[in-house]
Write a protein that binds this DNA or RNA. Structure first.
Length: 572
RNA sequence: CGGGGUGUAGCGCAGCCUGGUAGCGCACUGGUCUGGGGGACCAGUGGUCAUCGGUUCAAAUCCGGUCACCCCGACCA
């Protein structure tokens, strides 16, 4: 490509609207422009990068046996009503009506649509397994889009859906995708990690997220120091700690319970300080609303309740913090003074396992401005269940080895789910099995955010000068810079090298603008093209040109005749 | 949806408090020089000051409504 015939509108200054580095750099490098909140134009350079990622994804999906198709992005309401997600998906689903007042939405994901295709077309177990995928624009009306294409409303996603006859076969499909994802992100040149994840409102039985490691990531990953255990913070399990192992806890000095006045003190810190205790001496009692009934969740004062873990423990669809009204009704006291002793209503009490061995704890008294000291689990109240319901922290024991958990930040670029029969049952999608019986398909779904992968690569690779793209997904492999377009020798040799590289299939951009060398260098660095060849009178005197690699910013001079073979070596 | 903020030339910003000539840097156009790190000089182009209304002799500036965008939070494949 000749830059004089191309379009890369770079910017010298950071755009005011951008906050994170990838967003700033994508705008500055002329890859994207914003059209509306969370909606972006991909300019040529951005599109080119996107296509590189898409091609890697497409190749690996095809290798893994998945079959590409394309579904519409405007979807009729009927299918969404069948799966009940028309009601459950909420405001993230952008809905509208056509001229005949029929209801539609813009597709945020396509489980319903693919299930409809499969139930109409696949009759027999003999046609299974089958895995369809597409690379397509999605729309999710995010509450708060941000960080450019990392969390946009309209975005390009690769989504795949597997259909199997048996649970074992479905597991096989799942792990095949898991492996394909590993290859995809490896080929993209990213540092990433697959971690256990929550299934969220897609539903299903288990899932992994593929996280690109970056300090600016929105997600927190807990991983073990001694084994390969890694999970999203919200559901990272906590191993049994030493003090939890002691079944025979010392029964000394159990104090009687005692009501004390704690005027106006609602937070753990305030109460602990007032009563000369530490945060860990408190048992925090949270009243949680579930699908069916309110429950009390107990965690140590220095810990944080994980709603995700609680939801799993309860087997509930939804859990959320109760409103003050419900708290008053259930506990008899106002918000901020709840405790497990003397609850007004008999409700289920779920305690974190770390609560069991707290002695002489402080809890709310279920009365305004009152707390109780000397509370002992087992003596003063009994939990219906002790379980792991708190959020893991750095240094917590690993659930699978003797290691400890450490936190890292990541950007979720892919997610694989084993769905089971959630959609096939809801939509009556069945096949005839070998025994002649109609059975629902066992499904899996697998997503990759294409644009987000590009942004994540930039978050991972950048410096003061701009982007450092991994070779595989860089918009161009090589940029060729003639430092002075008025110098005939420079021009001729540049053109020769350009033609030679093109002839062997190298994706090369020649900066044949009449700009000064400085501007060309700045743009080359900003756009992150991995290999830069500089042709200028200085090195030409010795019959040489300069080769510089963007990733390590190392440069050296090579003979003109050797440029092509040197580039070939770098591309290997 | 709650809290905060911003809208002035293509981009980044000043001017607003204290009402009276719309300004700076970059970019852009023409020219001369320069030619390995966003170069210099000369001459230019470009704005309904988001929008609607109010106050005033006079509004970018003061007041109110609306819209858009950004940040924090809750939320989130």
């Amino acid at each position: 490509m000749r830059l004089s015939n191309y379009f890369i509108p770079t910017l010298k200054e950071d755009p005011a609207e951008a906050e994170v580095i990838s967003h700033k750099l994508m705008i500055r490098a002329g890859m994207i422009r914003k059209l509306a909140a969370g909606i972006y134009d991909y300019l040529p350079l951005g599109l080119k990068t996107l296509k590189k990622v898409e091609n890697i994804v497409r190749e690996e999906m095809n290798n893994a046996g998945a079959i590409e198709l394309l579904m519409p992005s405007v979807l009729p309401a009927e299918l969404w009503k069948e799966s009940k997600r028309w009601d459950f998906y909420g405001k993230e689903l952008l809905r509208f009506n056509d001229r005949a007042d029929r209801e539609y939405c813009l597709g945020p994901t396509h489980e319903e649509i693919i299930t409809d295709i499969v139930r109409k077309e696949i009759r027999s177990y003999k046609q299974l397994p089958i895995n369809f995928y597409q690379i397509q624009t999605k729309f999710r009306d995010e509450i708060r889009p941000r960080f450019g294409v990392m969390r946009s409303r309209e975005f390009i996603m690769k989504d795949a859906y597997s259909f199997d006859a048996t649970d074992e076969a479905a597991d096989k499909s799942y792990w095949a995708m898991y492996e394909a994802y590993n290859r995809i992100f490896e080929r993209c040149g990213l540092e990433f990690r697959a971690v256990l994840a929550d299934t969220g409102n897609i539903g299903g039985s288990f899932s992994h997220e593929f996280m690109v490691l970056a300090p600016t990531g929105e997600d927190i990953i807990m991983s073990s120091t001694d084994c390969d255990y890694a999970a999203n913070l919200e559901l990272a399990e906590i191993g049994v700690s030493d003090n939890e192992k002691e079944k025979e806890r010392p029964q000394k000095d159990l104090k009687p319970i005692n009501e004390v006045s704690t005027p106006g003190m609602k937070t753990v810190e305030e109460v602990a300080k007032f009563l000369n205790g530490s945060d860990g001496d408190l048992i925090k009692t949270l009243i949680i609303q579930t699908d069916t009934e309110p429950v009390a969740a107990l965690v140590r004062g220095d810990a944080e309740l994980s709603l995700t873990k609680l939801r799993k423990v309860l087997g509930a669809e939804y859990v959320e913090l109760s409103t003050p009204d419900v708290i008053q009704e259930v506990t008899g006291g106002p918000m901020g003074f709840s405790g497990p002793v003397g609850l007004k209503k008999k409700i289920k009490v779920i305690a974190d396992k770390s609560v069991r061995n707290i002695q002489n704890a402080i809890t709310g008294a279920n009365k305004a401005d009152m707390h109780i000291t000397g509370v002992n689990p087992g003596r003063d109240f009994e939990a219906d269940l002790y379980a792991d319901i708190r959020v893991a922290r750095d240094g917590d024991p690993c659930p699978q080895s003797n290691g400890t958990l450490v936190s890292t930040r990541g950007i979720e670029v892919g997610h694989v789910f084993k769905l089971g029969t959630k959609y096939s049952e809801a939509m009556n999608a069945t096949f005839s099995d070998i025994d002649g019986k109609e059975k629902p398909f066992i499904m899996g779904c697998y997503g990759i955010g294409i644009g987000r992968t590009v942004a994540a690569a930039i978050e991972q690779g950048n410096d003061e000068a701009g982007i450092k793209f991994p070779l595989a997904i860089a918009p161009f492999e090589v940029t060729l810079i003639p430092t002075n377009m008025k110098n005939e020798n420079v021009k001729t040799i540049s053109d020769d090298i350009y033609s030679a590289l093109k002839a062997i299939g190298v994706d090369v951009l020649i900066d044949d603008r009449g700009e000064s060398a400085g501007i060309k260098f700045k743009d080359a660095e900003l756009t992150g093209i991995p290999i830069r060849i500089t042709v200028g009178p200085r090195t030409l005197e010795n019959g040489e040109v300069e080769i510089k690699t963007r990733m390590d910013n190392e440069s050296r001079n090579v003979k003109i005749e050797e440029v092509v073979s040197e580039v070939e070596k770098l591309l290997l």
